[in-house]
Design a protein around this nucleic acid. Structure first.
Length: 473
RNA sequence: GGCGGGUUGGCGGAGAGGUUACGCAGCGGAUUGCAAAUCCGUGAAGACCGGUUCGAUUCCGGUACCCGCCUCCA
């Protein structure tokens, strides 16, 4: 199986060649844990979850290492911790920060679980790797790539000749177009912070440069190195991180570990829009994953909508898509439960067409089209197993539904008979009011009513409600 | 201002230099007491202007518009 991926580094679609097929390594930039994940945060999670599943399928589940970090050093978190302390909460600032991040991480896990995302193999937290960050910063100073100035440690951008290569920018162009105020102690306006001093109201750690905290970019370099080594296969994240975050990661890592070549393949997902517009608080179209779940949009629906758009295109979240997808997933659930042999489906491989589609630079849209074809061609076991593979409908869902329907089978049979006899008499009397009333009630209970000359069939639909059925007996 | 991406039928959204994408919706028909479901059939596209080519929606250039990044928002 040949996987092809668009590498941001070369701007080309390339054959994926892992450094070590027995341990394929991927690092993805995770969230800053200061609040609930918004819908945009879900996109890289879902995109790289699909890639993770594909890699596990191709190289074996035990031969892929997926790391996604939690950024738990951040001024927004500090602000919240400080607010709590001032409101009378007990504990040190560091403890209050920890409390806030723990809470946020638990939310994040719950929300991403709802989206069907597998847990990465490692979820390192920046605060657990301060030692490595300090060591890496010291090493960069020793090698002449960083310098101390005004209590800060800054990376010397001019010392790395390829700076800007990933994002296609030159240092000179960026300076020319910069709209940022430049700290006077910087040697070069583009130099960025590796370490900065902390005031008494900010969490901090001891370092050779005094009590302080790391800059944002260094954590990913340090954690990727610690967990994946000097060179690894894939680095992913949102397109907005390409510059400066990923550029800076590359610069730090390349300079600190000149014998490694950091990530071989860089993957960037495009951004999310909502009803055709950028999601923002000012436009009033900002919402979290939890908001959607609470509004009754199932996680699988969110996931499916995301997979409809290729990861390298902007994705537009619309309520209309969610409605359409909900119906489609409902159909799959009904079909899979009715026609698949669930015991053997578990042992069936996902449809090769779907794997092929994913292997071609994660063509998730084509994969979904192929799923439709599985249903069209009555490949029920593959339909079920492929939906499970993609995280869209877990096996357990099919099994749970089968169990639920088994409990209603007798009731359905009785109602079928009732409806048949009512109909027979109505055909004679030409008064269909009783038949139509029962039919409406059945439809209201989520049952599809199929009447033909051959007879009557009652098929529970995706929204079948056994309780409403009871009421009709 | 600098850099990057995009513009496909009513909607969503792909691939491929020439052959039906596909899904949803629509329309016609079969079927039905009426429906639903199903089946059969069917219309509809490639922002604009040039260029390359026997032939371009697909390659190249320009224009317009949209979007992102340049501000620790994925």
């Amino acid at each position: 199986m040949k996987i092809r991926l668009t590498n941001s580094k070369t701007r080309r679609k390339e054959d994926f060649q892992p450094i070590d097929p027995s341990n394929v390594r991927m690092y993805v930039c995770g969230p800053t844990v200061y609040d609930r994940a918004h819908l945009g945060n879900a996109r890289p999670v879902i995109v790289f979850d699909v890639l993770y599943r594909l890699l596990r399928h191709v190289y074996g589940p035990d031969h892929v290492t997926y790391v996604r970090n939690f950024t738990d050093v951040d001024d927004k978190i500090n602000a919240e911790a400080l607010r709590r302390q001032k409101a009378g909460a007990t504990g040190t600032l560091e403890e209050l920060v920890h409390e806030r991040t723990e809470e946020t991480i638990a939310w994040y896990h719950a929300d991403m679980n709802a989206l069907g995302a597998l847990r990465p193999d490692h979820e390192p937290r920046a605060t657990e790797y301060i030692t490595q960050m300090v060591a890496m910063t010291a090493d960069l100073i020793a090698k002449g790539h960083a310098y101390e100035a005004n209590g800060h440690v800054l990376f010397r951008v001019r010392s790395y000749k390829d700076y800007g290569k990933l994002s296609g920018r030159s240092v000179d162009d960026m300076i020319a177009g910069a709209r940022v105020e430049i700290a006077p102690y910087k040697e070069d306006p583009m130099d960025f912070v590796l370490w900065k001093p902390s005031s008494g109201e900010e969490p901090g750690w001891a370092s050779p440069w005094g009590r302080g905290r790391p800059g944002w970019h260094i954590e990913c370099s340090a954690m990727a190195h610690e967990l994946l080594g000097e060179s690894f296969d894939i680095h992913g994240g949102g397109l907005d991180l390409q510059f400066p975050h990923h550029e800076n990661e590359i610069a730090q890592s390349a300079c600190a570990h000149p014998h490694g070549d950091f990530a071989h393949y860089w993957l960037h997902n495009e951004m999310l829009q909502v009803e055709g517009k950028k999601m923002s608080k000012s436009l009033g179209n900002f919402f979290t994953v939890r908001d959607l779940l609470d509004r009754g949009v199932p996680g699988e629906v969110i996931r499916f909508v995301f997979l409809m758009t290729h990861y390298r295109s902007p994705m537009d979240w619309t309520a209309e898509k969610a409605v359409a997808v909900d119906a489609k997933l409902g159909d799959y659930l009904v079909l899979g439960e009715r026609f698949a042999d669930l015991s053997t489906a578990r042992l069936t491989a996902p449809a090769p067409e779907v794997i092929e589609a994913l292997a071609d630079d994660l063509n998730t849209h084509l994969a979904l089209v192929e799923i439709d074809r599985l249903a069209d061609n009555a490949r029920w076991n593959e339909l079920v197993t492929t939906l499970d593979f993609l995280g869209l409908v877990p096996f357990e869902r099919f099994e749970a539904r089968r169990a639920e329907l088994a409990g209603s089978a007798a009731n359905l049979a009785r109602l079928t008979e009732t409806l048949a006899s009512d109909r027979a008499s109505a055909m004679a009397s030409k008064d269909f009011s009783t038949v139509d009333a029962l039919k409406s009630a059945l439809i209201a209970a989520g049952v599809e009513v199929r009447m033909s000359k051959a007879g009557i069939e009652l098929v529970p639909g995706p929204d079948f409600d056994p309780a409403k059925l009871e009421a009709l007996l």
